[in-house]
Design a protein around this nucleic acid. Structure first.
Length: 281
DNA sequence: ACCCAGGAAATTC
DNA sequence: GAATTTCATGGG
């Protein structure tokens, strides 16, 4: 991959395995959306960015060299060779081979730990359009206004000050008390997401689950999407179905060090396949 | 009116 | 302890 810096723009040439739509719409993040001109715009690390695919290049609009090297290279996981990852996954199971080939271009974003934790608490027993709506309201009401007019994701410290009444405007329902508990534990230092993120996965999972509203699934999503622990394999209703259908007798550990990427490939594959079945039925 | 939504806590058996 | 019910809210 070649990286070209141009004013406030970064161009990625010969960047394999980066499909914007699949990466942003696969359910790992909730603050990116398609623009009228076919790009994807979103906010992360309190900065707004817009990406385009153009003639085989990826164009990152709104980032200079410093931010690219400090934030976005890591955020978009650009140093991992996904072609090699796919090859490694393909040999684990025939269906995974199929799912990997089908779902090329998905990258696991390295989001901020607090944003991932908070977002996946909100995601429980919920659907993606409404998750996005709630998070959007959360940012608009309690985040900081950026120069672009967009809003940052509010810090744990900011949310820890809020009462249930304050938080009612985001219409999070029963999840509101979980958000406040998480914000208090994180901002007080009782659960220090940064220093914890080097713990072994099983221990880290147990600590995260001390937060109200955080069970195994939310904990694993936080680790996978917010701490880049690629060996995590969140088991939701879709994945449980997939495990019964295609991977009987296998456990998340059987998917190896890139289990989280495998999980995304399988998720995308299953949803597309089942959606097609219901269309043709 | 009824059903479901990338779950987890509370309750019941 | 494992199975079931409840939890707010909005969209289809």
């Amino acid at each position: 991959m070649k990286v070209i810096f141009k004013e406030n723009k970064v161009i990625l040439r010969e960047c394999d395995e980066f499909n914007l739509e699949r990466t942003f719409e696969c359910g790992q993040c909730f603050r990116w959306g398609k623009t009228a001109d076919g790009g994807y715009k979103g906010v992360a690390f309190s900065k707004e960015l817009c990406l385009y695919e153009h003639g085989g290049d990826i164009i990152i609009n709104g980032a200079g060299k410093a931010d690219f090297e400090h934030i976005w290279q890591d955020y978009f996981d650009l140093s991992l060779d996904y072609t090699a990852v796919k090859k490694e996954l393909s040999s684990i199971h025939p269906v995974l081979d199929k799912a990997s080939a089908f779902s090329g271009g998905i990258r696991i974003l390295h989001q901020e730990p607090w944003e991932a934790l908070c977002s996946f608490i909100i995601s429980q027993n919920n659907n993606i359009p409404r998750i996005k709506k709630i998070i959007n309201a959360l940012c608009k009401n309690f985040g900081d206004k950026l120069p672009s007019g967009a809003y940052s994701f509010p810090s744990a410290k900011r949310l820890a000050e809020l009462s249930m009444d304050d938080l009612a405007v985001i219409r999070a329902g029963f999840r509101a008390k979980y958000i406040i508990d998480a914000a208090q534990k994180v901002s007080s230092g009782e659960i220090d997401l940064i220093s914890l993120s080097s713990l072994p996965v099983p221990e880290l999972r147990q600590v995260l689950m001390k937060i109200k509203g955080v069970g195994p699934k939310v904990a694993d999503c936080t680790m996978l999407y917010g701490m880049h622990r690629l060996e995590c394999f969140p088991l939701d209703v879709w994945m449980k179905r997939a495990m019964e259908h295609y991977f009987q007798g296998m456990t998340p550990e059987d998917f190896g060090r890139y289990a989280g990427i495998a999980q995304q490939y399988i998720f995308h594959y299953c949803r597309s396949t089942f959606a097609d079945e219901s269309k043709s039925a």
